[in-house]
Simulated scan of single mutants.
Amino acid sequence: MFLRNRLVLAACLLALNSSVWASPAQTYNFGQPAPAAKASRSVEVVMGDMSFTPKAIDIKAGETIRFVLVNKGQLLHEFNLGDAAMHAEHQQEMLKMQQSGMLTPTAMKEMDHGSMAGMEDSSQGHGMKHDDPNSVLVPPGKTAELTWTFTKAANLEFACNIPGHYEAGMVGKLTVSQ
C-alpha cells in the first residue's frame, strides 16, 4: 500500500511538471495558421524601421492570406496578428526576452534552457520562446511569411511588439469583414 501511494504521488508530480500539461496549444478566436498552398491571395507587408507599409489591410471572413513580410529596416521586427489586448500582453513577454538578453536589436538569440532557470513566465506556464503561430520575427534585410485563415469578422491589428516599436508607430489596422 505504501509503495502504491508513493507511485501515485510520483505520477501526479510528473504530470503536473510535464511541459505537455504546462503549455496547452493556444487558440485564436479570429482564425488559425494555414499552409501557404491554401492562400486565396498574398499581401506584401514592408517593414521599415518603425513602420509598416501598408498601414491597413482589409480581409473577408473565410479568406486565407499569405503575408509576405519584407524587412527593409536595420532592426529585427515582428509581424504579430491580434487585438490590442493580445499585443499588450505579448509586449510584456518581449520585454522579458529583451531583459534576459535573448532579444537583441537585430536578432533573437538561441538560449540554453538550463541557463533560463528562474526566467520562466509563470503566468503563461512556459519558458520564454518566440513560437506563437500568429507571429513571426524578421531579421534586417530578410523576408518571411505567415499564412492565416481568418474565420470571422473582427477588428484586429498587425504589430511589432519588440519593446518600443509598437509605441513608435509600428502597428497597422487589420479589418476582417463578413
Rank of each mutant, 00 (worst) to 15 (best):
M111N: 00
T53Y: 05
Q92S: 04
K38N: 09
T106H: 01
T106L: 00
P139A: 13
A107E: 08
E89T: 08
E89W: 07
E145G: 05
T151W: 00
A107N: 03
P139R: 15
L156Y: 02
A159E: 02
E44Q: 12
E110W: 09
A22F: 01
V43S: 08
P140K: 11
L95D: 01
V20C: 07
M170V: 08
T53Q: 13
K60M: 10
D83F: 10
K72D: 14
S177M: 13
D132R: 14
A25M: 12
L75C: 11
T151K: 07
T104K: 04
V46T: 15
S23D: 05
V176F: 12
N71I: 11
L9V: 02
V70L: 11
V176T: 10
V176Q: 12
M116R: 03
V138C: 12
L95S: 03
G62S: 11
V45L: 01
G73T: 15
A22S: 09
D112G: 01
P35A: 13
L95I: 02
R41P: 06
I59P: 08
E110T: 11
E167V: 11
D121I: 00
A11P: 00
L14F: 03
P33T: 10
K55D: 08
A36F: 00
M170H: 08
L76R: 05
Q74W: 02
A39R: 12
A34Q: 04
K38Y: 05
M108Q: 02
G62F: 11
L14R: 02
F67Q: 06
D112W: 02
V171G: 05
T149V: 06
F79P: 08
K142T: 07
V45K: 01
M108A: 00
H87S: 07
M1S: 04
L9N: 03
T151I: 12
A11Q: 04
P33K: 09
E167K: 15
L16E: 06
L13S: 09
F30L: 03
F79R: 10
S115N: 14
L14P: 01
T143M: 11
Q74Y: 09
F2A: 05
N80S: 14
M170E: 13
Q124E: 15
E157K: 09
K38W: 07
V70M: 12
T175N: 15
T151S: 14
G169K: 12
A10V: 10
E78A: 07
R6P: 00
V45C: 03
P54C: 06
Q98E: 07
P163V: 14
A84Y: 09
L81R: 08
G114Q: 06
T147K: 08
H90C: 04
W21T: 09
A88R: 15
V46F: 03
L95P: 00
S122I: 13
F79K: 11
S23P: 01
